[in-house]
Nucleic acid binder design. Structure first.
Lengths: 217, 217, 217, 217
DNA sequence: AATGAATGAGGTTTCATTCAT
DNA sequence: AATGAATGAAACCTCATTCAT
């Protein structure tokens, strides 16, 4: 289906552009990202970039939209698997870890945009994000009803799950720089999936309903 | 003993500049922040800004340095208070919450810089950050020795404590935008101190050493 | 086959820019030359100037490179003509005079850069200059072997030939200013070619091997 | 006489400023020279520099004026010594070499200003320079009358004498840079006085009246 | 679908000079 | 005689975007 045999033409320009944009946005952030460099990495003419996708803001929105969709897919898949609230909850950081494994630029872009207060995203896209929060809320409330979780603020739990994971994913890069300067204890979590498991383990125990105290005599 | 009675001169120019810089960096991020606007907010001539503090990068470093120092102070104060590992650990998110209360721009700048991988900070400043991690590690290991915590990766705990808090602080702003669009359940943590308590409560229970199981009869 | 009929478009933008740059560098010197003015004289947008050639330093280097090439061409042409050391030597100031006639800004730029110690030129370009010195050295040494020149430092001869010519070319402008103030004897060399001849005449006699003294009877 | 014992106060501020200005003007040229740096080198407050000498243009003029005066003094001294036209003529490059030995920045400033066409000097100062030319002219014309020089353009001779010397003085710095890149024959004139002697030797022979041709039989 | 050229606005930084004390 | 602070203009350069072909 490729139009030419040129090395980069095997993948459609739009795809190349979005990938290039993602990587530059991740590395530099929205403002510091240069349209010039995105075009260069996509091996595309700058004008073509406008032709195929649109201006810088559109570029960014498309990139973010794709990852949000992927998160939603992962969570949808998890929904079907089991209705154990503990498994449901653990699926949240794991979904993020999976998408991050697929698209390494994702945690950086996401954290940057959170820090920016969503400044580069339109209303509709923010609303999409809400669906992810809703997933966690249902799990927490389900667990509560079933007596496996104590009463906790579901939003707090969500933010801890996701925040911890994204934070860890990003901090790793900074940590590597520090390790280049001074030797550090050797305990960084190896990969994000491992981190995701560590996070849900702690949080699940953290919100578990304590066993009924032994009744006083 | 202010030098002049002019409305903005009650506080030293350097202070005004750093405060203005902090607010602009928080709102816009390093690259999108304009020296022009920083100067305007500081009510200072653009050239004066260079005279008093230095270029944009220096400006940023000074701002970050100040908040790191404040975090270190808060933790140092907590160190003196008690040697209960649980209290020590709870002091970490609380220190961040306190500094954030004092300097509202802090969580945003910090999260942005984490997402940037420390790109705008010199090596020495990254090293300073290590001291904060060390505080958590000592608390976790102390708790372990005393038998109140189970064996967990201290770095993971640290990143969860700090990451959760910073993430919550930032997500709040995005959340408010969403709330303007569609009504949401009314459960956002009121202030950061409350969030800090919620976080440490969950994590402390999450890493607590389980009581010895009663032996089966 | 000009692209447009617009009045300034008959000559390629890059050419116009280099010419404009040359004239401004000559008039004002590297530091005082304004990119703004270069663009104006080239009838080009300031950004286009960066697009077509590069920054101020690059602009300068390209201009200098062109004239060095021209000098080398002139000398190469002279090499083929004759192998009389006297003619070879005379070709040196004449080459400079010819290039100066073609590009009036050349002596000024060159003298300015000599005075700057080559501060705006990269190593490779300085090396190019060496080839010109080598030409003179070969002529002087050739003349020595053939017994027409006495033993003199070839570098000294080179610097006198070139220095005199460039100095005269530049002093003329200053001299004109003086003449506007007070009347002067009417003896300025008319053009640079004449000056070049005057210079080589004096220097050739100056380094000529004196005839063998008539032996005393 | 010194007002204070402070290390830099033994020499009057005005002197320090002029010396600092001279060195910066020599190194960087008029436009690139920064008032800031001049003040720093003079160990003087920037405002004081304006108080003691004046603005940048004035600073420059004072520096140039001083060296012109010194050249005039040297030539005046030479006038008294002998009335041999050859010695008179040789005194010209030697005067420049002497002043250069005293004030190393002099040849650079001078050559730069020649290249600038005197742009930074007022009319009166240009006129002063004329007196130097006049010295050479008298020597050349005197020598002509006495039958030791042939008929040559005195201005040409002057420009060759002075131009060669200044050119050599400046080229030396560029030459050193080249030598750092590639090894070169070892024949640079050691110091300027030696160069001055080399120059006048060649030029004196170059304009010497040829011995009467042996009359044709 | 593709490109090189064009553009205007804006970015950061520096500079010579002066003022208030 | 001396200083730190102030200022406005201008410097160089980059950017996102569009146009003509």
């Amino acid at each position: 289906m490729a139009k030419r045999a040129a090395p980069n033409a095997v993948v459609e320009p739009r795809r190349r552009i979005l990938d290039a944009a993602a990587s530059v946005f991740a590395e530099r952030g929205f403002s510091a990202a240069g349209v010039e460099e995105i075009a260069r990495r996509a091996e595309v003419n700058k004008a073509m970039l406008y032709y195929h996708v649109g201006d810088k803001a559109t570029l960014f929105r498309e990139v973010v939209l794709e990852v949000i969709r992927r998160i939603q897919e992962e969570l949808a898949a998890a929904t079907g698997t089991s209705d154990d609230p503990r498994k449901r909850l653990a699926a949240v950081p794991m979904a993020f870890a999976r998408v991050a494994a697929e698209r390494p630029y994702f945690p950086q872009i996401m954290l940057r945009e959170i820090a920016a207060g969503g400044a580069h995203l339109p209303d509709e896209m923010l609303v999409e994000i809400t669906s992810v929060v809703a997933f966690t809320r249902r799990a927490v409330e389900g667990g509560r009803r079933k007596g496996v979780f104590r009463g906790v603020n579901p939003l707090l739990v969500h933010l801890m799950l996701v925040g911890s994971l994204l934070f860890i994913a990003n901090a790793t890069r900074m940590r590597r720089r520090i390790e280049d300067i001074q030797p550090l204890p050797r305990n960084t979590p190896k990969d994000l999936a491992t981190a995701a498991r560590g996070i849900s383990e702690i949080i699940l125990q953290g919100i578990a309903k304590p066993r009924a105290r032994r009744r006083r005599p």
